[in-house]
């Protein structure tokens, strides 16, 4: 059986919030090159931005000298973005779904990112490897 064509793009940036615009551009261009439709592209960009912001803030504790690597892969009808960092790992199971009425009542600001990522993408997987890498895999059907 013939394997589906696969195309991939890669980017590594420092963990400075100033690089978020570069990351968004990278995803936009890679998605455009591979013909992903605009609405889906926006969802992927937003999910990757949320993931990146979380890594900068929580994994690297706002230290702008960490490294974050991105792989954007389109294979068949699926788009996968793999994001790796070497910051502090976390337990995704410990991230509770936000209680929106409480959010609104208390006027809270943070904590929506992981929730949003899960809504925007079809699958979100996270693992911390023994070699000290954290790997987040975001997957979205594109057809």
């Amino acid at each position: 059986m013939k394997e589906a064509n696969e195309i991939s793009y890669h980017l590594t940036v420092k963990s400075s919030t100033e690089n978020l615009a570069i990351v968004r551009d990278f995803i936009r261009k890679a998605a455009d090159e591979t013909g992903v439709n605009t609405e889906v592209v926006h969802k992927i960009i937003l999910a990757v931005d949320e993931a990146s912001s979380n890594i900068m803030r929580h994994a690297y504790k706002n230290n702008p000298e960490g490294e974050i690597s991105y792989s954007f892969i389109v294979s068949g009808s699926e788009c996968t973005v793999i994001i790796t960092d070497q910051g502090v790992g976390f337990n995704p199971a410990a991230v509770r779904k936000p209680d929106l009425p409480v959010y609104i009542k208390e006027g809270k600001r943070g904590g929506l990112g992981m929730h949003l990522m899960k809504i925007l993408m079809d699958n979100v997987q996270y693992e911390s490897t023994e070699s000290g890498f954290n790997k987040l895999v975001l997957t979205k059907k594109i057809a």
Binding site: E50, S53, E106, G107, K108, R109, G110, L112, G113
Partner: peptide, 16 residues
């Protein structure tokens, strides 16, 4: 562009 932090900012503003 707006992300979840921007959204949180608006929610907080609405509450205030």
């Amino acid at each position: 562009f707006m992300n979840s932090s921007g959204l949180g900012m608006l929610i907080s503003g609405l509450t205030t």
